[in-house]
Design a protein around this nucleic acid. Structure first.
Length: 884
RNA sequence: GGGCGAUUAGCUCAGGGGGAGAGCGCUGCCUUCACACGGCAGAGGCCACUGGUUCGAAACCAGUAUCGCCCACCA
């Protein structure tokens, strides 16, 4: 029964993905009796395209979902996309600009229409790419954060938080991106260590001779100064508190005040206070009732408050200010100074601290509960190392600025009446004010992360009490990268607890970042981005998925390269060819006997079935703990080395032999192990496992491997004795192979082998002569407890046996002597190590009995081995002498 | 400034108180009827450093060094 010589991933992937969709296997059924298992996808940006980080995310989630689906759960993997306010607006804005269209000229409504058009055109891209990766999402439940339902959830949450006083509006210093023209939350600012300068500027007293020197990194902000502050304890400045100084150029008089905040040891100990452009100064100003003067516009240009500098760009202005101060002798000195400059996380522009009226979430009441949820285990963070970061952030959390001065997003559901100053906060759009006046909706939209924070319940139908919500909330696990732990994970916990009264997910598995081959972060500017889709085209999706899983050890970044994927493609190839081999040996029209009905299982059959049992148990246990790399490793080791290298070789004599009974058993075993192994592998490599499984010529209880029952220990046969006996046979084979390999005995030469056995191994070996014969290419094999070993021979000592290959006419005796000497050296080192232990009274008295016994046993074993090898060397030396 | 992580074979990394592991690479042999994207056999490591705990440490603890990351309003 034929199977293609080569595995062709491209064709197969498309075929089976379509098949799965058509059959509706990914659809969750709320009515099902099965227990629920749910994962919500971290919604990718709707304008985005799949990068390698997504690929990892998706692979791990799909492994969990496919595993649970096969394990009898009603699984829901809920997919969707995020409107990604600033990012999307920027993308569309740029595209329009290319056509010479400015968004302001277009107007708000028209612009938003354009974004929706854009979404319609490109929004499907990333969804299709998820499908290429094999993601088994329930596409019938796909959501978008700006959907009607989700928008309703957003309004509901806003209105309720406002009603409870947890949302407020006010003038505060926020982070402002002059390019995106919007406020940003603290999280959206990325600090970058920069080598900057500290400028020392002289402020002259207004009514007497002399001056005070202040130090600043942003000299251009001095136009907004409304005071100079010193520490009240600072002796140097005690006398000048209360005096006034004049600002250079402007001549405006400002007071010298005392405030505890000032660190006397930094700079000159005197600080310029710029309340509208610095968060600390803002606080100082509130304490001292200082005025707030805005010196910069929203796009980073200087205002009329800066006199001659009006209209200049902030950086240009800085240069000019420094130059002018220097020319007028007011720049005392300039010092190198390292500082962290904040950049917009969407466009990399330097952000400005900016006084502005914004909306905020009072976050402390929400964060406290979110902390307890993790502390008492309602939410488990895996790996647990991230808990500290989570607590640290939650405990130092500051109010969340949620308003954005952009157009694409959920518009804030607040209306103002120009006539009576009424403020209406409402879920439904109001038409007119109570006073009959005209209402005007707040111009701002909400932070994208505000809607993402609701994702685990808004997608399930909240605020309605839907069946999905009842069945699938709380979800089981959230899988994502650590980069959005605060942005998203933490906020979902807060919002889920607040509005559902339950945690949004029981586990959150935080995976590492994928880096390039050299360990650098992948970025477009660096040009080291690996495109996962071109990888799947080159190597096949299964290989990419398996690679990602195999490298996804907890807690460490993954260095990724095509070379590694290539390595695992070899594994795919191995699986394909092993299957091909099995199919080749099934006769035309042959009916495969179910394993349970076979009566003549050989040692090899029983051994591989026992191993299969252990492997199934291990894989399940490892997946339960999100140890993807270990699970992948166990499967790799089992399939390649145990199944292919040993078992397939061992059945060959049976398959080509003429004992029909053992052949039938072997075929049953082969098919059973193949089918089970493919099932175990399916979550990791869905396509090839389906392709091969579909071709296995047995009666199937289901139409796809993806809904087959996931194997457990009972799918094999636990048989310790067979594993032990097989170990003996393997030892014999390995011993002979070592001799052959190291003494370079050509494979074409058939050798004679003598094995001197002890303690019942004689029987085991005699019963399994066929294997030794084949693996060792031994013609004549003599086995027995009391056989005489010839002098002129190469030897290999294994537990319970001494293997002997007569050398006469085969090889150089010196070569064997060298080899044995090397071996004896190794053993002697080991021996002295153990003997040191055993002669240590502390060890004998304090170490566990079993450990002591084990060491004694080992000592004797190695001692015997050394003695035997020594004797063998003696014998060989005698021969050399005789020859000479 | 605070916190976290890493340091194990040439490379990439698992492991985690009693025998140093894997993959790739390397060396030798093998074009054997599933697979050369293969098979067999090998070589290769004071598990970063210094102390401590212990009968026993690569593992646990403390410190040091180097690298990386996260958080942070000292102008």
């Amino acid at each position: 029964m034929p199977i293609d010589k080569k595995f062709n991933p491209g064709e197969v992937e498309k075929k089976w993905y379509d098949y799965w969709l058509e059959k509706g296997y990914f659809k969750a059924g709320s009515g099902s009796e099965k227990p629920a298992y749910c994962i919500v996808i971290p919604p990718p940006n709707v304008t985005g395209s799949l990068h390698i980080g997504h690929a990892l995310d998706i692979t791990l989630q799909d492994i969990m979902i496919r595993w649970k689906r096969m394990s009898g759960f009603d699984t829901l993997w809920l997919p969707g996309t995020d409107h990604a306010g600033i990012a999307t607006q920027n993308v569309v804005e740029k595209a329009l600009l290319k056509d010479g269209v400015d968004r302001h000229a277009l107007g708000r409504e028209k612009f938003i229409e354009k974004v929706w058009e854009w979404k319609a055109q490109y929004g499907g891209t990333i969804i299709n790419q998820l499908k290429v990766m094999g993601a088994s999402c329930d596409w019938s439940r796909e959501r978008f954060t700006l959907d009607e339902g989700l928008s309703r959830a957003v309004r509901e949450v806003f209105v309720r938080l406002y009603g409870e006083g947890l949302i407020y509006r006010g003038d505060y210093i926020i982070n402002w991106c002059p390019r995106c023209h919007t406020a940003l939350s603290d999280l959206e600012v990325e600090h970058e260590d920069t080598k900057g300068k500290l400028y020392y500027i002289k402020y002259e007293f207004a009514h007497e001779e002399g001056f005070v020197v202040v130090a600043t990194t942003r000299p251009e902000t001095y136009f907004g100064d409304t005071a100079v502050a010193v520490n009240p304890e600072d002796e140097r400045y005690r006398d000048i508190i209360g005096k006034t100084v004049k600002l250079p150029v402007l001549g405006r008089e400002i007071p010298i005040i005392a405030d505890e905040f000032v660190d006397a040891t930094f700079g000159t100990g005197a600080v310029k206070v710029t309340p509208a452009h610095d968060p600390n100064d803002f606080e100082i100003a509130k304490r001292h009732n200082l005025p707030f003067i805005k010196i910069m516009t929203g796009d980073g240009r200087m205002t009329g408050e800066t006199g001659p500098y009006e209209g200049q760009d902030r950086f240009e202005c800085r240069k000019n200010v420094i130059r002018d101060l220097e020319e007028t002798g007011r720049l005392e000195r300039v010092k190198d100074h390292d500082l962290a400059i904040g950049h917009c996380y969407r466009c990399r522009t330097v952000v400005e601290p900016f006084l502005s009226k914004q909306w905020f979430v009072r976050i402390k009441p929400l964060s406290e509960e979110a902390v307890s949820a993790v502390k008492d285990g309602r939410v488990k963070i895996i790996p647990s190392g991230w808990e500290n970061s989570y607590f640290n952030w939650m405990e130092n959390i500051k109010d969340w600025c949620i308003s954005r001065q952009i157009w694409w997003g959920h518009r804030i559901p607040v209306w103002y009446c120009d006539d009576c100053n009424e403020v209406i906060v409402s879920i439904e759009d109001p038409t007119v004010c109570v006073c009959g006046g005209v209402l005007r909706q707040d111009e701002d939209v909400l932070d994208t992360w505000f809607s993402s924070a609701l994702w685990p319940f808004s997608t399930l139908g909240w605020p309605d009490d839907t069946d999905d919500l009842k069945k699938f909330y709380p979800t089981d696990v959230l899988i994502t990268g650590f980069d959005i732990l605060f942005f998203w994970v933490a906020r979902m916990v807060m919002m889920g607890l607040k509005f559902m009264g339950r945690e949004p997910f029981r586990h959150t598995y935080i995976h590492a970042l994928i880096r390039d081959e050299e360990g650098h972060k992948m970025s477009k500017s660096r040009g080291n981005v690996v495109d996962p889709l071109s990888m799947t085209e080159t190597y096949g999706t299964d290989a990419v998925r398996f690679t990602l899983a195999a490298y996804a050890a907890q807690g460490r970044d993954i260095k990724f390269s095509g070379k590694r994927v290539e390595g695992y493609r070899h594994f795919i190839n191995k699986i394909w060819n092993a299957s091909r081999f099995i199919f080749m040996n099934i006769r035309e029209g042959e009916k495969i006997v179910p394993l349970m009905e076979t009566k003549t299982l050989s040692l090899a059959d029983r051994w591989i079935l026992s191993r299969l049992s252990s492997v199934a148990a291990e894989v399940n246990a490892l997946l339960e703990e999100y140890r993807f790399n270990d699970a992948a490793g166990v499967l790799y080791q089992f399939v390649w080395h145990e199944f292919c290298d040993w078992y397939l070789e061992m059945v060959k004599p049976v398959l080509y032999g003429d004992d029909e009974g053992t052949r039938i058993s072997a075929i049953s075993t082969l098919v059973h192990v193949l089918e089970t192994a493919l099932s175990l592998l399916h979550p990791f490599m869905p396509f090839i496992s389906e392709e091969i499984w579909q071709q296995i010529p047995v009666k199937k209880e289901v139409d796809s491997i993806c809904i087959r029952r996931y194997p457990v220990a009972g799918d094999g046969i636990e048989d310790e004795e067979s594993e032990m006996n097989m170990g003996v046979v393997m030892d014999a084979v390995l011993g002979i192979r070592t001799i052959r390999g190291e003494l370079n005995i050509s494979p074409s030469i058939e050798i004679k082998v003598l094995i001197k056995t002890q303690n019942g191994t004689e029987d085991i070996l005699k019963r399994n002569l066929v294997y030794i014969n084949k693996f060792a290419r031994a013609g004549e094999i003599e086995i027995g407890n009391n056989i005489e070993l010839p002098k002129n021979s190469a030897t290999s000592i294994k537990p319970l046996m001494e293997i002997c290959v007569p050398l006469k006419g085969l090889i150089n005796v010196d070569l064997e002597i060298d080899r044995l000497n090397r071996e004896i050296k190794k053993h002697k080192e080991e021996l002295s190590f153990i003997s040191n232990k055993l002669s240590n009274n502390g060890f004998i008295s304090k170490a566990p009995k079993a450990v002591v016994e084990e060491n004694k046993f080992k000592y004797n074993e190695i001692k015997d081995k050394v003695d035997t090898i020594t004797a063998n060397i003696e014998k060989l030396l005698t021969i050399n002498e005789e020859d000479a």
